[in-house]
């Protein structure tokens, strides 16, 4: 069995204390929520924090609230399972609930959190391997080496954004509340991410994501379709998140975000721009889906071939549009 390295575990009493602890310990420390992403990575020595600051127990991070306007706020440390059991949420934000339900397996969803899922590390099959394997293959940019094993001439890391909930959160226009040494700030989820596999999060040192805020449905429908090899457990090979507002058959607003085809969720606003003001028929869906597939640039660092993954982007985008178009529109409370 791969064993965990030695580390100390700190249990802050508040978000502020957690932030202070992270500031204290700097680079040696890491936030741990459910640990379903972090701990396996530590076993493989991909990351080696010596101090873990636990946040799963913090009351302030497990709240759940629907505001008067109909926006839903979810504490970052709520489990994905609690999201699935949340009937109101499933009704208002079916796309988000769908995505949460497609993460890994029931056991991992019981432990994995909303915040952890948004922050989950990028993946690459040259990287998500044991220390021994990486010694045999040689290190890469993401493990302190000189070059990218996948694309040796590339100056950057292409590890894949692999969160299932990030694309839909971006599509829904969700915002994230972040606590840090300078206090709290609220940012669009989209701006949490950077197109760099080696530094995919735009969070400052010591910053903690405390809440996810999903805006009121306000007539928007949503859907998330995930491409994966098996019926459970597997990370996305591609994901398509669609948010759609249709009035009497005509598109009033539309957002399409792809997951797992780049180092961050990829919003294709130009592509869907033309849909607005048009009826959403099969022809329009096909055209957008083909366009998405053309724009998606998966690389050879995940399961199955990247040619097939690229081709399948068309299918999942079309499926997501069809699903969103036929989903119910939540009544504003």
């Amino acid at each position: 069995m791969l064993r965990l390295p030695r580390f100390s575990y700190l249990r802050p009493a508040s978000v502020a204390e957690a932030v202070a602890m992270l500031a204290d310990h700097g680079d040696r420390s890491s936030v741990i929520a459910g640990g379903t992403d972090l701990l396996p990575k530590m076993k493989r020595r991909q990351v080696q924090p010596t101090v873990l600051v636990g946040i799963a127990h913090l009351e302030a991070l497990s709240h759940r609230e629907t505001t008067a306007s109909g926006a839903v706020e979810i504490g970052a440390s709520r489990t994905l399972t609690s999201v699935l059991k949340d009937a109101e949420l499933a009704h208002h934000q079916p796309g988000y609930a769908q995505a949460a339900g497609l993460v890994s397996s029931p056991a991992l969803r019981n432990t994995g959190t909303v915040g952890g899922n948004l922050c989950v590390d990028t993946r690459c099959n040259y990287y998500d391997m044991s220390e021994e394997w990486r010694t045999a293959s040689g290190s890469c940019l993401k493990t302190g080496g000189e070059l990218c094993r996948l694309a040796p001439s590339s100056p950057r890391c292409w590890a894949i954004s692999s969160s299932d909930t990030a694309p839909i959160a971006v599509a829904l226009g969700a915002t994230a509340v972040v606590a840090g040494p300078e206090g709290e700030r609220e940012v669009p989820v989209a701006s949490l991410y950077r197109d760099d596999g080696n530094a995919h999060l735009a969070l400052g040192r010591g910053e903690i994501l405390t809440r996810l805020r999903l805006p009121a449905p306000d007539g928007w429908r949503s859907s998330y379709v995930k491409l994966r090899r098996r019926s459970s457990m597997d990370f996305p090979l591609a994901g398509a998140a669609v948010a759609l507002k249709i009035d009497r058959g005509v598109v009033e607003g539309c957002r399409l975000v792809l997951g797992a085809v780049a180092s961050q969720p990829v919003e294709l606003s130009d592509l869907v721009h033309g849909l607005v003001g048009q009826p959403l028929d099969e022809e329009a869906i096909e055209e957008v889906a083909s366009g998405a597939s053309r724009l998606a640039k998966p690389l050879d660092n995940a399961d199955l071939s990247y040619v097939w993954r690229k081709r399948m982007v068309k299918e999942i985008v079309a499926r997501a549009f069809r699903q969103a178009a036929t989903s119910e529109v939540a009544a504003v409370p």
Binding site: D128, M129, S130, W133, R230, D303
Partner: peptide, 8 residues
């Protein structure tokens, strides 16, 4: 992929 997640 010598791991049970990647070896399908």
């Amino acid at each position: 992929h010598p791991s049970v997640l990647e070896y399908k």
